[in-house]
Every structure is written in structure tokens, then in C-alpha cells.
Simulated assay, not measured.
Amino acid sequence: MIIMARGPGDEDLKIAFLFAIPYLLFFLSFRVFASRFLYAMAASTVAMAALSLKLFPTIKNFYRFSAKNVVMSLPFAGLAYLLFYLGWIGTVYLGLSRGVYFIYDVVPREPFSLLALTLIGLSEEPYWRGFVQRVFVEKRLKLEWPFAALFYGIVHLVTGDLVLPLAAFVFGIVMSWAAERYGLVTSSVAHVVWLYVILYVIPVIRLPLP
């Protein structure tokens, strides 16, 4: 009697494929196409979102549309901004602010910049807080939602900077909390608002240091 070894199922292959995608796309965006980072990142995150929603349609159930969930995005955006500012202060005094300046240097003030930022904020959420948090961390690994932020931080190691992975982890905690408490609408709006404020409205590099 011949017993055939059981290979990975379709869902396992989909998870492995999706989990590997951002490491390639983030490397291309941050390192290969750094001069056009914003638009490369927008294209990358849109692709990640489209693949996530196509391969795991149940992620759509994580969207909760209501006025309350839109309004609740504002305190989460504010908290993310405050933590980023505190982190900025720390990097300055430790001499590790290169990564922060990099982000400001590669985000242009062009007509399509706001559109690109909107796409990034909206598209990162179904992947990182939908697929990684809900499908991979919570359902597959049976772990609590904060672990999703760990993966969000790890992928930023491809940038070659020491600060960005930690900053991404802290930001990921806030967005994961928003998504877990109120759904992807809240984390998506909070992500977009935070990007607008941190990059254009009140850049932290223009604030006084204590």
C-alpha cells in the first residue's frame, strides 16, 4: 500500500505567496526605485491590497462602514502622530534620524502626491491589518492581534535603516488596535490622515526639540 504524502493545501500556498510579496515590493520601492519612492510604493501597496482581497475575500467583512468608525479614526491618527514625534526626538538625540529624513526627502510635493498617499494609506490596511492580522496572525497562528505589528516592522528591515522597522512596529500597533477595535474603515482613514499630517500639514522635522 502506497501512502501519498499530503502536500500544502491551496490556502497554505496562497498565504505563503501573499506573505512573501511585500519583501520584494518594499525592497524595490525603498532601494531600487528610491528616486520615485512614493509612486513605486503606491503601486506596490495597491497590488498587495488587490491580491489580498482576491485571494481572501472574507477580508471585506473586516470593513465596518459607519460615521462612528470614521470619526474614531482621528484619535488613532493623533496617537500615531504623537508617538512618531516622540520617536523623532529620540532619533535626533541618538544620531539615528537618517531614516526619518529619507522619508521626507523622497516624498515630493507634486500634484499626484496626495493621490499616491491616499492609495498607500487605503491599500496597506487590507493587506497588513486584513490579511496579516486577521487571516495569518489571528486565524492561522492563533496569536493576539499585536503580533501583526511585529511582521509590519520586520518587513521594513529591507530598507537597510535601523529606525524605520521600529517606527513601523509602533505605528503598526496603533493601526492594528484601530482595526481590531473598529475595523478596517477606521484604520484606513487613520492611516491616510496620519500620512497627510505627518508629511504635509505638520512635519515633525519642523517642530521644536525639547
Rank of each mutant, 00 (worst) to 15 (best):
Leu74Ile: 15
Asn61Gln: 15
Val70Thr: 09
Asp105Leu: 10
Trp88Ala: 02
Ile89Pro: 01
Gly78Ser: 13
Thr91Val: 08
Val107Ser: 07
Asn69Gly: 04
Phe76Ile: 03
Tyr101Gly: 06
Phe84Met: 11
Phe102Lys: 06
Thr91Pro: 00
Tyr81His: 08
Gly87Arg: 02
Val70Asp: 02
Ala77Ser: 10
Leu83Thr: 03
Val71Pro: 00
Val100Tyr: 13
Gly87Phe: 14
Leu96Thr: 10
Val71Gln: 06
Val70Met: 11
Arg98Gly: 12
Phe84Arg: 05
Asn61Trp: 01
Val92Ile: 14
Trp88Glu: 01
Asp105Pro: 02
Ile89Lys: 12
Leu83Glu: 10
Tyr101Gln: 09
Lys68Thr: 08
Ile89Thr: 09
Val71Asn: 02
Thr91Arg: 07
Ser66Ile: 00
Ala77Leu: 04
Val100Glu: 07
Leu74Gly: 02
Asn69Glu: 01
Phe84Thr: 14
Val71His: 02
Ala77Tyr: 02
Ile103Leu: 15
Tyr101Lys: 11
Val106Pro: 03
Phe76His: 05
Asn61Val: 00
Phe102Ile: 03
Lys60Asp: 03
Leu74Asp: 02
Lys60Glu: 10
Gly90Pro: 05
Thr91Asp: 07
Ser66Gln: 04
Tyr93Met: 12
Leu96Trp: 11
Lys60Trp: 13
Ser73His: 04
Phe65His: 09
Val70Asn: 03
Leu96Val: 13
Phe84Gly: 05
Lys68Trp: 13
Leu96Gly: 01
Trp88Ser: 04
Leu79Gly: 05
Tyr63Gly: 00
Ala77Arg: 03
Leu83Ile: 11
Arg64Ile: 04
Tyr93Cys: 04
Tyr81Lys: 11
Asp105Gln: 14
Lys60Val: 05
Met72Leu: 13
Tyr63Leu: 01
Trp88Gly: 01
Asn69Lys: 01
Val70Glu: 01
Asp105Ala: 12
Gly78Pro: 06
Val92Pro: 00
Val92Ser: 04
Pro108Asn: 11
Ile89Phe: 11
Lys60Thr: 09
Pro75His: 10
Tyr63Asn: 00
Phe84Gln: 09
Val106Tyr: 08
Phe62Ala: 10
Val92Thr: 13
Pro108Trp: 11
Ile103Lys: 08
Phe62Ile: 01
Lys68Met: 12
Gly78Val: 15
Asn61Asp: 15
Lys60Arg: 15
Ser66Phe: 03
Leu96Cys: 07
Met72Pro: 00
Phe62Lys: 02
Tyr81Glu: 06
Asn61Ala: 09
Leu94Asn: 12
Phe76Trp: 14
Thr91Trp: 10
Gly99Ile: 13
Thr91Leu: 13
Tyr93Val: 15
Pro75Ser: 06
Tyr85Ala: 08
Tyr63Val: 00
Ile89Gly: 03
Pro108Glu: 09
Val92Arg: 13
Ile89Leu: 14
Tyr93Gln: 14
Asn69Ser: 04
Leu74Ser: 06
Ile103Asn: 06
Gly78Arg: 09
Pro108Gln: 07
Tyr85Cys: 07
Ile89Glu: 06
